[in-house]
Computed example of a mutant assay.
Amino acid sequence: MLGWALVFAVLAVLAGILGFSALAGLAATIAKVLFVVFLVLLVASFIIRAIRGQSVV
Score class of each variant (00 low, 15 high):
A31P: 00
A5Q: 02
L6F: 14
A27H: 03
V33C: 10
R52E: 05
F35M: 13
I48F: 15
G53V: 10
F20P: 00
S45L: 15
A15W: 00
V43I: 15
W4N: 12
V10G: 00
I47S: 05
F38M: 13
A28T: 01
S45H: 14
V40L: 14
V10H: 07
A15G: 02
G16W: 01
L42S: 08
L23V: 04
L26D: 06
I51R: 15
L2P: 06
I17A: 06
R52M: 09
Q54T: 12
A12D: 00
A44L: 14
S55T: 04
L34I: 05
F46M: 07
F38D: 09
R52P: 04
A22F: 11
V10Q: 07
F35Q: 09
R49L: 14
V43P: 13
Q54C: 08
F35N: 08
F46L: 13
L39F: 13
L11G: 03
V57T: 08
L6G: 09
L34Q: 09
K32T: 15
L39R: 12
V10E: 06
S21T: 09
I48S: 14
A28D: 03
L42E: 13
L23P: 03
V36A: 15
L41G: 14
I30G: 00
G16P: 00
V37G: 05
I47N: 07
V33A: 10
S21F: 05
L14Y: 08
L23M: 06
G16A: 01
F20L: 07
S45R: 14
G3H: 02
V56I: 14
L26Y: 11
V10I: 13
